[in-house]
Design a protein around this nucleic acid. Structure first.
Lengths: 328, 328
DNA sequence: GTGAAAGCGCTAACAA
DNA sequence: TTGTTAGCGCTTTCAC
C-alpha cells in the first residue's frame, strides 16, 4: 500500500537505517542527506508505520484512559483534559468506559495495559488491592483519588469543604443535609470531612446515605427528603446530584436560595448551567487530568522512582444558590 | 518481560504456529493439544502481543473516533455508545478531540488513520471535500451527518422538526425564534427545514443567526434577544444552547412556558435535567453511535461495497417547557 | 555519518 | 492436524 522505509531508502540512495534515523534521531544524520531523505519521503507520501515501530521499540506510544462513565460531565471534562495533554506529549489515547463492576473494570484495565505504555484510571470504583495489583503490573496513575504508594493527582477537598460549611454557618444555617453517594472511593473520607467541618462551625449534620448512585434522578429523589429533615441547606456530593436536587426542589415549588441553600462539589459547567447558578466547591478537573498524564509519563520514564502525589487546591465559589437561612 | 509464543510452544512441546492458531483459530487445532497449550499459557500468564499481531496481520484491530468537543453532552453520549459497541465487537477505541479548526481536524484524522483500521467522525466540522478525501484514503463512517456517497448514520430531522412546529402552532404560537448555530454541517439543511415547516403551519419564523457557537453562554446571550423579537416560542439548535436560553430567560424573570415556550433539539440528559424539563426533538444518539460502528466495520470488511446511509427516526417528546401562547 | 545484519513477536502460506 | 519458513516494517547494535 503505502511506502516503506525501504522504498524511501532505495529512492534516496541510502540505507534503511538512515531513513529510520532521519525520523527518530534527525540530529544524528548529516543535514544534506537528511534533506534528501525527507524530500523523497514527502514525494512518496511516506510516514513511518507506528505498529512496526512499536514492535521494534517495545513500546506503543499510546496511553490508556479508563473512566466509569463517559457521559458524566465530571469524567467528560477529565477525558477532555487528559486527551489534550496526551496530544501535546504526542501520545495517542485509548479510551475505555468501565462501568461500576469491579472485576470487569479490572479485566478491561488488564487488557488495555497490553496495548499501551501506561494506564490512567479516573475515579476508579475499584478496591485498593486491585489498584495496587494493576500498578504493580505496569505504569499506572490515578486521577481524582488518593491511594497511598501510588501516583495520583487529586483534589484536596478539606479546604473547600470547610469553606462551604463555614459559608453556610455564616449565613445562619444551623442544620444541613449532606447528599452522599455510595460506592465511590472518596465517600468515606468525605463523610469524615463533613463531620469535622460541621463540628467546627457548630452546624448539625444530617446525612442522606440512601443507595444513591450519583445520578440526576437520585438527586431528585433526595430532594423529596430535604423538607422533612429540618435542614435549611444542602451539600451535594457532585454536580449531577446537585442538579437533581435543584430540579426536585423546583418541582416542589421550593425556592433556592429562598427556602433552601444548595452547594455542589466538583463545579463542572453544569454548576453554572442552571438557574440559579450553583455555589460550588471548585475542583480543578483540568489540572487533575493534566497532572495525571504527567505523572504517568514520569512513571513510564522511570518505573522505579518513588510514588508521587499531586494535591490540587479546592476552593468555594459563591454563586446564587446560597443565601441567608429563612427565619424559623 | 512477558512470555512469548515461542516460550509457550517450547513448554507445550508444539510449534509456535500451533500456539498462534490456538489463539486465533482455535477450531483448527485438535482439542487436546489446544488444552495443553492453553494450560501452559495460563501457567506462564501469556497473552498474545497485539502489536506483533497487528504488524503481521496488517491491521491494528482498533478504531479511531474523532469528536469536536468531548465535554459537550451530545458528543459525550456518542462517545459512550460508540465505545460500547466497539467493545462488543472486540475493538479498541482511539479517541481524539478535534476542536473546530478544519485543517487541524484533518491532520488529526490523517494521523489517526495510520494507527487504526478505520475512522469514525462524529459531527465533523469539515468541508465535504475534506471528508471525501479522508474517506478515499481509508475506511470512514460519519455519525450525525449526511454526506452523499459516504457511509453515515444520521438522524432524520424533518419529521421531528415538523412535529415541533406543528406542536407550537397548535398551542397558538404565531411567531417563533430559531436559535441556530454557525459552522456546523447541519446548519444549512436545518434552516431550510425550519422554513418549510413554518410555512406549512403558517408560523412566522425569526432567525437568530448571530455568530453562535453552540454553547451555553451563547444560548444565554440569545435569550436577551428573544423578548424584543415579538416571538412567543423558541426552538434551539441543541441542548447546550437551549439550556442557555432557559437560563437567560429565567434570569430575566420570564417564565417558561408561561411567557415563552422552548423546544430543544437532540434531547441529551440535559433536556430532562433542568426545570422545567424541556420539550425536545429527540435524536437517537445511542443508535447513531452503534450504527456508525457497524457501518465502519462493514466498510473495513468490504472496502469496495456501495456506500450505505442509515437514517434514524426523530420524534417530538413533549415535556414541560411548551404551553399555550400568552394572550397578546 | 552511514550501512549491514539481526531481531521485535506474531501470522500465513505451504509442506508434510 | 501440525511444523517449517519467510516475512510484516522498523530499530539498533556494531562495524566501517
Amino acid at each position: 500500500m503505502s511506502a516503506t522505509m525501504a522504498d524511501v531508502a532505495r529512492e534516496a540512495g541510502v540505507s534503511a537505517s538512515t531513513v529510520s534515523r532521519t525520523f527518530s534521531l534527525p540530529e544524528t544524520v548529516r543535514a544534506d542527506t537528511r534533506e534528501r531523505v525527507l524530500a523523497v519521503a514527502r514525494r512518496l507520501d511516506f510516514s513511518p508505520n507506528r505498529t512496526a515501530s512499536s514492535l521494534a521499540r517495545g513500546r506503543t506510544g499510546a496511553l490508556g484512559l479508563l473512566v466509569p462513565d463517559i457521559a458524566n460531565p465530571y469524567f467528560g471534562e477529565i477525558v477532555k483534559s487528559v486527551q489534550r495533554r496526551a496530544r501535546t506529549a504526542d501520545r495517542a489515547l485509548f479510551l475505555t468506559e468501565t462501568g461500576d463492576a469491579h472485576d470487569e473494570a479490572y479485566g478491561l484495565a488488564k487488557a488495555m495495559a497490553r496495548q499501551t505504555d501506561g494506564l490512567l484510571l479516573a475515579g476508579p470504583r475499584m478496591p485498593e488491592d486491585m489498584l495496587r495489583s494493576l500498578a504493580a503490573a505496569g505504569p499506572v496513575a490515578l486521577i481524582g483519588l488518593h491511594v497511598p504508594q501510588t501516583d495520583c493527582a487529586y483534589a484536596e477537598l478539606p479546604v473547600g469543604m470547610r469553606q462551604a460549611v463555614r459559608h453556610l454557618a455564616a449565613l445562619g444555617h444551623r442544620r444541613i443535609v449532606y447528599v452522599n453517594g455510595t460506592r465511590t472511593a472518596r465517600t468515606a473520607g468525605f463523610r469524615r470531612l463533613m463531620r469535622a467541618a460541621c463540628d467546627e462551625f457548630r452546624v448539625e449534620l444530617v446525612e442522606h446515605l440512601g443507595p444513591f448512585d450519583l445520578t440526576y434522578d437520585n438527586g431528585r429523589a433526595a430532594a423529596d427528603l430535604v423538607p422533612t429533615s429540618g435542614a435549611t441547606a444542602v451539600i451535594a456530593h457532585n454536580d449531577m446530584v446537585a442538579h437533581g436536587v435543584a430540579g426536585g426542589l423546583a418541582r416542589q415549588g421550593r425556592s433556592v436560595p429562598g427556602d433552601f441553600s444548595l452547594i455542589t462539589v466538583d463545579d463542572t459547567y453544569l454548576a453554572r448551567a442552571i438557574h440559579p447558578a450553583l455555589t460550588a466547591v471548585h475542583v480543578p478537573i483540568d489540572a487533575m487530568g493534566a497532572h495525571g498524564v504527567d505523572l504517568l509519563l514520569a512513571r513510564i520514564a522511570d518505573p522505579q522512582g518513588p510514588p508521587r502525589l499531586v494535591a490540587l487546591p479546592t476552593a468555594l465559589t459563591v454563586r446564587e444558590s446560597t443565601g441567608r437561612a429563612p427565619a424559623p
